[in-house]
Design a protein around this nucleic acid. Structure first.
Lengths: 339, 339
DNA sequence: TACAAAATCGAAAACGTTTTCGGTAAAATC
DNA sequence: GATTTTACCGAAAACGTTTTCGATTTTGTA
């Protein structure tokens, strides 16, 4: 009960494999009559081309690889959805790997994808990734590579990002505009570019408004969890009771902080104003609802695939790949956690 | 600059392709000396077997397909993570497709995966799936298939599930035990089995406790969103002000309801007690925190892949596949939304 | 030295497809 | 009726691997 092959159809019809193949692909040098016969038999035998053979012959599989630091995460799963939806439209399949924020794993996974000969790779870097050889290898081998969200500026490939610096600047400016005088920042790990950029935006906004930058008001977390938010909120109350505004690197941590402040009777936004980042849908549900930066995950995924697709097409036509930086718009969503 | 092949190595060393292939796989009929030479050259040429050729020859790709109704969802993304983590350990890659709760799309995607000749398929059904031909076709073709969470009882394949009926029964019983006299139920769509089972558990608990079942207290939603929760909460206040307990099919909707009740000054759990389902991590963060049923998503993903892996191994050894039902334990997590 | 046994190697087929290129038959042209 | 054109078809190579089976060489034994 093996699946039918071209050979089966050919023997059934007493013609050659070549003609069958061409008939199914509507080559002009096959008569209408033969085409009809072949197509009909293919239908009844439920013929499906053997993808393995096609891959080998065409040196392509219409499959791309996606490496992402963490799947269980609203922003990232939105990106995945964007990627898959777009890939499906263009007839591509997506193999997903999770780096778990580990550089070592990320490197292995790149190797794995290369050895599986995916047509291209989409990646959002692990926090710990500081060496980029594995990525440059991919590019050197002529395989299209597009980075998104957590990128490395030094790698010469296409990137889909937001202007983290500007967005963070706007978030901080909003705190200042609504009267905050002493603004803390809960930030992510030292390495990833967007964590750095958001911090720089925060700092710049302070400086542009003549407010002194105080390093002791910057709290650094390694993994963004709800609990970290609770913990940092406690720390703020203990160490800096004069703080009246916080710009938090990511909504989940901000919501942890809000919960902890609520628990301690701290009034938001009267006592402390908070701005998050990402516009996780839960941010509108929490009390008080969270003012935040809207970061378009689904759109980012779509764009990342679209760019990769362009490069895949360019490669097929033996045209050179020109890296492109795509910057998506963000916006400040004002809610009840700021005045 | 094409990647090296066995032929390249063979020519370099003046030996046959056969010997090179066998040397790399440590066949006993290749001398140690030759093996050493081959392996060294393979190393320096950075030889990687052409996966396409291996796939064709071995009729297997060490790749499985995963069809899931919705990716941006805490429970499902946890399942995905469980599947991928386990698959990676066994050297399998996972292609993910999203059915978007559409039966039509689900059918197409099954076809796509079959034509791509994945080694096996994992699936959680779309809500609308009532016809199972596409699934039975997969089984008939001898391709391992494992269903999880949203399953079809009538399809004869392995399944990884929880006892939705029992869990719902326990949830409802908890409401009764804490003094609720009139208990509503927010349930999911009519078709999927777990939606049915949770409803049946709710009903059975009422009956076992001598409480009459009132159909007007059952609210049905099509897509589980935060907003549905808000809407149903309003409805309850309008239509059934005497309700003092609600068992909600899923946490997200429950949290929507809690938010709406908070907004209207309804006290939880004093006026209305609420029990959710899933133990979404946000449930512990909301105020009041949500009593709910813990549903082990990551574990479910792991188990689903493990079962599929067993069947893949059985198939390789030409042994028959024996469908197995794996039931995971759930537990009631008591929090502040019930007395 | 002769012979059996063990060690080592390679030719060739197979997986199923795509595509080039040459060949034959039918139709069109003169 | 001879020749050119067009329509249609198929042989064969190629993609890179795995594996069977037979051949050759080396080693061991008497």
């Amino acid at each position: 009960m093996k699946p039918a092959t071209l050979k089966d159809i050919a023997e059934h019809l007493g013609i050659s494999v070549t003609t069958v193949s061409k008939a199914l692909k509507d080559y002009p040098d096959v008569s209408k009559k033969t085409k009809a016969l072949v197509k009909e038999l293919a239908q009844t035998l439920n013929y499906k081309p053997n993808a393995f053979a096609v891959n080998l012959r065409m040196e392509t599989s219409n499959t791309i690889g996606l490496i992402i630091p963490e799947i269980v995460h609203h922003f990232f799963s939105s990106v995945i959805k964007g990627i898959i939806s777009q890939a499906e439209k263009k007839g591509y399949l997506v193999i997903i790997l999770q780096s778990n924020e580990s550089y070592e794993l990320e490197k292995k996974q790149i190797d794995l994808l290369m050895s599986k000969r995916v047509d291209g790779i989409l990646i959002s870097l692990a926090n710990g990734t500081a060496d980029f050889k594995h990525l440059n290898d991919v590019i050197e081998q002529g395989k299209p590579l597009v980075m998104f969200d957590k990128i490395a500026k030094l790698v010469n490939c296409s990137k889909v990002i937001i202007d983290d610096r500007k967005a963070a600047y706007n978030a901080t400016q909003h705190l200042i505009d609504t009267g905050c005088k002493r603004i803390a920042h809960f930030r992510g790990p030292l390495l990833p570019q967007n964590s750095i950029d958001r911090f720089l935006g925060y700092k710049k906004a302070l400086e542009d408004n003549g407010m002194s930058y105080d390093p002791s008001l910057v709290y650094i977390f390694d993994n963004m969890t709800f609990e970290v938010g609770e913990m940092f909120a406690q720390k703020i109350l203990r160490e800096h009771p004069d703080v009246d505004g916080i710009f938090v690197n990511t909504d989940l941590v901000a919501i942890g902080a809000i919960t902890e402040f609520n628990r301690n009777g701290v009034k938001i936004p009267e006592d402390i104003s908070i701005v998050g980042f990402s516009n996780w849908f839960m941010s509108s549900a929490i009390t008080p609802s969270l003012t935040t930066i809207d970061q378009p995950g689904f759109e980012m995924g779509k764009m990342a695939f679209k760019q990769l697709f362009k490069e895949l097409k360019a490669k097929k036509k033996k045209k050179p790949i020109v890296p492109k930086i795509i910057e998506l718009e963000t916006s400040l969503v004002k809610r009840d956690s700021t005045k």
